[in-house]
């Protein structure tokens, strides 16, 4: 990518170190507090506050609504914090057999998908990242293009295949289908992790006569674990949040995932709007993901960074 800065222009500036220091400090921290400065600062902090409120408010609102007694929920004007707190809605969620079954189904499917994708993906990524074989580049391109595959393009034919194999409305069927988006992603990400490791790492082991698989297991794997944890979390989030396949390939409570259940969730109450219970269900479905993301947030941001820089 070309930079549109003229290097000559930058080089031609003749300034002494002390002058430069002065400029630098005046540029980075404005010690003077004149009115425009203060207004700028106030504006800046207002903007920051707006960003935080904008990103967090909807989830805050879901939590507040899920804790508000039904009578307080449907009042005008809206109250921004609860006057009294109730756990009734959570009780409704956790005693709803269908929803609990869906939570279990989602957990089973997501964990299985992650384990399978990580197992197959690590082997494939090791070969693609560290071994030399003909056709490697073609395989890499194939995997990369698979990461951008639109699910809707294969929905119908998958439906037919699943019916033929008796996989329709089963959890194992869903696990296999979810590999369409988790496996290429896992292989691609882990390949890049393996490639980024210095070449010298397993050379010594190989010179000493270790087999490539030993080199993978003893030397590369321990170093790849942080990358694998992040990849596993991202694959888990994708599987947990998936909706289109789950909507299409499940029919009964025995295989419905939590996203389908929550979209159809009405709660037990027949005569009132189910919003509060729905919000409680929404919080229950989201909290596991948020905990995971907060635990590895630095790595996720670093991953995003690397992705963008690649340009």
């Amino acid at each position: 990518m070309s930079m549109s800065i003229e290097p000559n222009r930058i080089n031609s500036i003749q300034t002494s170190e002390s002058e430069l220091e002065q400029i630098r400090s005046s540029y980075t921290k404005s010690s003077k507090s004149s009115l425009p400065d203060i207004l700028g600062k106030v504006g800046f902090w207002l903007l920051i506050a707006f960003i935080v409120v904008y990103t967090l408010f909807p989830f805050y609102w879901a939590i507040v609504s899920s804790l508000t007694p039904t009578n307080d929920l449907f009042v005008t004007p809206v109250r921004f914090w609860p006057q009294s707190v109730t756990l009734d809605h959570y009780r409704t969620v956790f005693t709803d057999g269908g929803f609990m079954r869906a939570l279990l189904n989602s957990a089973i499917v997501s964990f299985s998908v992650v384990v399978l994708a990580l197992l197959l993906g690590t082997l494939g990524a090791y070969a693609l990242g560290r071994l030399h074989f003909r056709g490697r580049t073609v395989v890499l391109y194939l995997i990369l293009s698979m990461t951008m595959f639109p699910a809707i393009a294969i929905l119908g034919s998958l439906f037919q295949m699943m019916q033929n194999f008796g996989a329709y409305n089963t959890l194992w069927g869903l696990v296999i289908v979810y590999l369409t988006f988790t496996l290429p992603f896992t292989v691609w990400v882990l390949t890049n992790f393996f490639r980024a490791m210095p070449a010298e790492l397993e050379q010594a082991a190989l010179v000493d006569g270790a087999t490539p698989m030993r080199a993978l297991w003893d030397i590369l794997m321990p170093l790849a674990i942080p990358g694998m944890v992040t990849t596993a979390l991202l694959a888990f989030i994708a599987a947990w949040s998936e909706y289109l396949y789950a909507r299409t390939f499940t029919l009964t409570n025995s295989s419905k995932t939590v996203q389908v259940a929550i979209a159809d969730f009405t709660g037990n109450q027949q005569f009132e709007l189910p919003f509060a219970v729905r919000m409680a269900a929404a919080v229950v479905v989201t909290v596991p993901l948020l905990v995971g993301v907060l635990l590895v947030q630095k790595r996720i941001i670093a991953g995003l960074t690397a992705g963008a820089v690649k340009g």
Binding site: T182, V189, G303, G307, V309, K310
Partner: peptide, 11 residues
């Protein structure tokens, strides 16, 4: 969601 977060360590 998934393609949105390609984790790609730098080349």
């Amino acid at each position: 969601d998934i393609s949105a977060v390609e984790v790609r360590p730098a080349t």
